[in-house]
Amino acid sequence: MMQAGESASTTAGQIAAQPAADLAIATRGLRKVFDGKVAVRSLTLEVPRGEIFGFLGPNGAGKSTSLKMLLGLVAPTRGQATVLGHPAGDVGTRRKIGFLPEHFRFYDWLTSAELLRLHGRLYGMSHASLRQKVPELLDLVGLAEHAGKRLRDFSKGMLQRIGLAQALLNDPELIFLDEPTSGLDPAGRRLVRDIIKAQRQRGATVLLNSHLLSEVEITCDRVAFIKHGEVIETRDLNSLLEGQTTVLVRASNLTPEMAAGVEKWASSVALQDHQLTLAVPSREALPEVLRYLISRGAEIYEFTPQRLSLEERFLQIVGSEGGL
């Protein structure tokens, strides 16, 4: 018999609130050298619990190697890392961690349900809880119909999905996703986004490696730009008030006068037919811009602040050399 309280806590998979100062990940000067080749130069990073954190960087920047050091797969040459309050790679802590490797490969002679059961057993989960969890996860990643199919017959996207399900088996407190959308169709990408959102609601921390800027923009709270194994810059993507923002305005009767009128708030203004694009140094100015346009009689259909342009920043950081 299941108690009412117990079932509620299992279904929600909620993670108890942690003190604000509690960090999911903290690293200091983490470094990895492979046979004389520096993969990660010096990674210093703090990720609070409950945050969706993105790693952005060109190919070979050291993103995957950084993740592997945090997971204990690769031993750092130097530096320290704490994960969920324990040294990186601590065996007991792995119970609370989920991981989707960059190239998800697993025993392809297993069926997808068998694979999840095996991984669940490795997490120390009971047969009983797996009987419930495995179909649930297969359903979540859209593979319910393929429960009995061998992984060798799976497409790349399907493998990625099963890998994702595998990373969620234990209701992890911290999830590492190394390019989770690679090989996925648009529905699959949407699925990843939704899953990450659901994990945030559970209170989980997610560390995401990605090249897809739009995706990072939508899902992450904060991103770190990494190049040559160093954090060049971290950015908060949620702050409403800070930083320069570009706004796209679509209205039916925009005039050049209106464009000139908003210039006092904007650093740049461009008018094209029914579309006005303006860059404001601070988001605080946005309500005033909107009020001004309405007062001048603009029939506004759309007023969309664009998120900080990650792409521009990414290209600046990568530079002309392409980062390789």
Partner: peptide, 14 residues
């Protein structure tokens, strides 16, 4: 070499 070990070696077993 294939990386299948990665998903296993990150599970809570030494």
């Amino acid at each position: 070499a294939s990386g299948t070990i990665q998903a296993v070696a990150t599970k809570p077993l030494p």
